[in-house]
Write a protein that binds this DNA or RNA. Structure first.
Lengths: 116, 116
DNA sequence: AGGATACGTGACCATATGGTCACATGTCAA
DNA sequence: TTGACATGTGACCATATGGTCACGTATCCT
């Protein structure tokens, strides 16, 4: 339920491809790269493939780009990943917290675990 | 580079589907559910579809399952998500840290930003 | 102006993916 | 031991996805 109508679905999907993650890594190393510069870092693929991946990253708002003269510069936007970490991954990546909330629920007499 | 030969690619791919995330959520709410119980929480899909998704989650090690009599019980395994958070997402979800390292590089006279 | 450079678009193809079904297997309980 | 129940398998199909290409447009430099 919470996961299906979530707005960060495009982010999850964008991150699912290793080439796209490689592009993010490249931008992490050096921000504001052009299409060409990014192509050079993914040599096993043509420019068109890279451009498609960049478009997907842009749609997921993971990359922000603007033209500068005849080249287009790409900048990494960490905000969606931040949000993912905050409102989804953190939920699973904190079994510690989870154990605590579970304990707290028991102490407070919460019986939601028993329904169905 | 770092992202492409990464071993948590199956985890990323598994998380890319909203149905799969919904299944994880369901297991988060109540652990150790059978296929049937999980099917009941994804009513828009047949049992076979759910089983396929569960298989993918198992392959990604996000779900651990074992048979119990004539039913198969599924348990959430948060470890892969933990690792994802630790060695990938945290890198982007800490612009604070990043700003600091960037500043440090500048202070140390690091010129890697200028190459190409 | 004119050529070289850099990016954009649409068509196109192969394959991966999501989903369903008929059928088979294993398990419990009367 | 029979039947109902719960899961497993393989084939199968439609579409989404990843990738390439021919061609077009915008920009810079001389």
């Amino acid at each position: 339920m919470t996961a299906r109508d979530s707005t960060d679905d495009p982010v999850f999907r964008a991150l699912a491809d290793p080439t796209r993650r490689a592009l993010l890594d490249a931008l992490f190393e050096r921000d504001g790269q052009s299409v060409q510069a990014l192509c050079a870092q993914v040599p096993e693929m043509t420019r068109f493939g890279v451009m498609k991946h960049l478009a997907i990253l842009e749609e997921a708002n993971l990359v922000i780009a603007h033209r500068d003269g005849r080249s287009k510069l790409h900048f990494l936007n960490p905000v969606p990943i931040q949000q993912l970490a905050d409102r989804w991954i953190g939920k699973y990546a904190r079994p510690f917290t989870r154990a605590l909330t579970g304990l707290q629920q028991q102490l407070e007499g919460d019986t939601s675990q028993e329904t169905a």
